[in-house]
């Protein structure tokens, strides 16, 4: 079971709701993914052409809403969006995103830390999206982040876990759950993150733009479960040099003849 603050989740796959061809496909994909946590964004209603209300497609009794602050360029904007999100959703859960560069959508570490600190004081359960910077993860944890969400590679790129070395350090050090977000383009990427010991992954683009998003959602479900199972079963170590699979006893090691007895 994944525990974030006091909530428990049996699924370790979070699904984003953007970029789907239709609300109906999104709904079926979420069900196929088994996800219990879905992210949503907040936007002004387009008065000329109001879309359907996304909340009507998601069974909020079974699935946790995780509103994000996408579009916020700085801490002030993110905090404003967060309060709107709480008013709209009725939950204090928040995926904090502060992305000043519209080209890469990479998160701003300084304003993310600032906003996290403020929003925790305001009573939010904050899951900040962050670059895979281990010290930032610790700083965010210290100001009260409920989990950290390091990126695998820039959002929407489907490049996989390019930040593996850094993510591994974050996983080793963090006291709060680590949810690998962004860049997960294939089920194998999700497995890799889970095998490394990530607590969960968030996937959106890879499911939404697949030829068959519903089947892809199912594939991610299995990949996340397999990766987690492998992590819990205890993976053997990998090495760049050959290691014998027969016992190593008696292999050459250090001379320890200075030891008495």
């Amino acid at each position: 079971m994944l525990t974030i603050t006091n909530s428990q989740f049996s699924s370790r796959l979070f699904v984003g709701t953007g970029k789907f061809s239709s609300a109906a496909v999104m709904k079926r994909a979420i069900i196929a993914s088994g996800a219990q946590m879905v992210t949503v964004a907040l936007r002004r209603v387009d008065l000329e052409n109001p879309e359907d209300d996304i909340m009507s497609h998601i069974d909020i009794k079974k699935i946790h809403f995780l509103p994000n602050t996408s579009g916020a360029r700085n801490a002030t904007e993110a905090i404003r969006l967060a309060h709107l999100a709480r008013a709209a959703s009725g939950t204090p859960w928040l995926k904090l995103e502060v992305t000043p560069d519209p080209r890469t959508l990479l998160p701003d570490p300084v304003d993310t830390l600032k906003a996290t600190e403020q929003l925790v004081k305001d009573g939010f359960i904050v899951l900040p999206y962050m670059n895979a910077d281990p010290i930032l993860a610790l700083r965010l944890q210290d100001v009260g982040a409920a989990a950290v969400m390091p990126l695998g590679s820039p959002i929407g790129t489907n490049q996989g876990i390019q930040t593996a070395l850094q993510v591994a350090i974050i996983i080793e050090q963090a006291r709060v759950p680590v949810v690998v977000d962004a860049g997960i383009g294939a089920p194998s990427h999700a497995s890799q993150a889970m095998e490394m010991g990530a607590d969960a992954v968030l996937v959106n683009t890879a499911i939404a733009i697949a030829d068959d998003p519903v089947r892809m959602a199912g594939a991610f479900k299995q990949a996340v479960e397999a990766g987690r199972e492998a992590f819990e079963a205890g993976l053997g170590a990998s090495s760049t040099t050959a290691r014998p699979s027969s016992p190593e006893r008696g292999r050459i090691g250090e001379q320890l003849d200075f030891i008495d007895g």
């Binding site: 984003g16 709701t17 953007g18 970029k19 789907f20 999104m26 992210t39 949503v40 964004a41 907040l42 936007r43 002004r44 209603v45 008065l47 879309e51 209300d53 996304i54 909340m55 809403f65 509103p67 994000n68 996408s70 709107l84 709209a88 959703s89 959002i155 962004a182 968030l202 959106n204 683009t205």
Partner: peptide
Amino acid sequence: VELIRFVGGG
């Protein structure tokens, strides 16, 4: 007046 609602997002 700002009227805001949830939309799909990751």
